[in-house]
């Protein structure tokens, strides 16, 4: 690096370091609060050094029904994601590997579906689900999350399937395999890492989704975001308990997200960019 560039380099690193603090500090504060006793949380200047305690976690799982919410969220995320992956992968296969008229239009339609405001879907769906008696069951959020995640998974899988050389599938079919045999023997193993990424990102969305779960569940079927909303909704917030709940909810998904974050761009923008 030439000498004349140095002021620029210093400014660059200053910006990056400030942005690192901006990103990390709020997360660090809430994680630290989850290990603090009330007296360390309610101080006017932030305390960096304190005696850690697990009381907040114990309270979340015993006094509040946090364990139940964890189970509910796991069920909703797993079931809705499993369905979305199966339905979405086959749809993506149909849209990429077959000579089909209107494939572009259908694929574009999935993308437009993603832009519809959640509230415009929630209100009518709420009335319908209430009428057919699914309200208060886990079926409500599962159905909603399937619909919300489908466009993303279709686009992500289309990207992965297109990256597989056509020759592979052709060779299998020349050897006498049917379409579906070719899919399972040739394409499926190659795109398996892609399916894993789509699985994690779909789980992540379901795990984090609030609005549908808020209205479609009741006390026994609360998911994690609804549970956390109920901790904070009241006038006074139990910061220790809600920090523990928030930490236990976000840390697993942040860790898993590290491995798949580069696919977020691709699935969301409909292949406009590749991660």
């Amino acid at each position: 690096m030439k000498k004349k560039f140095r002021p620029g380099a210093i400014a660059k690193w200053a910006v990056l370091i400030i942005f690192t603090f901006w990103t990390v500090v709020p997360i660090a504060i809430i994680i630290m609060n989850s290990f603090k006793k009330a007296k360390d949380i309610f101080t006017s200047s932030p305390t960096l050094f304190f005696t850690p305690t697990l009381d907040n976690y114990v309270n979340a799982f015993t006094k509040a029904d946090f364990g139940l919410y964890y189970l509910n969220s796991t069920i909703v995320a797993f079931v809705s994601t499993a369905v979305v992956i199966i339905v979405g992968t086959f749809a993506a296969y149909a849209l990429t590997s077959f000579q089909m008229k209107g494939a572009n239009t259908i694929a574009g339609g999935f993308l437009v579906a993603k832009l519809v405001p959640v509230i415009s879907m929630l209100l009518p769906l709420f009335v319908i689900i209430n009428t057919i008696g699914l309200r208060g069951t886990l079926g409500g959020p599962i159905i909603a999350h399937i619909a919300l995640n489908l466009p993303f998974v279709v686009w992500l899988m289309m990207g992965f399937l297109r990256d597989v050389p056509t020759e592979l599938q052709q060779a299998a079919m020349i050897d006498g395999a049917t379409r579906m045999q070719a899919f399972w023997r040739v394409l499926f193993p190659v795109v398996l890492p892609g399916i894993a990424a789509a699985f994690i990102l779909s789980m992540q969305y379901s795990w984090n989704e609030l609005l549908f779960s808020l209205q479609l569940t009741d006390l026994d079927t609360y998911t994690l975001p609804v549970g956390i909303a109920s901790f904070t909704g009241s006038v006074s917030v139990d910061w220790g308990l809600s920090s523990a709940a928030a930490t236990a909810t976000m840390v697993p998904i942040i860790i898993l997200g590290f491995f798949v974050q580069r696919y977020i761009a691709e699935g969301t923008t409909g292949g406009a960019v590749k991660g």
């Binding site: 690192t20 709020p26 609030l210 975001p225 904070t232 928030a246 909810t249 976000m250």
Partner: peptide
Amino acid sequence: IFAMPVLISPIIVSLI
């Protein structure tokens, strides 16, 4: 590191 917030549930972001 910068990507972390996008993985967090909006309701937790509002809590933070």
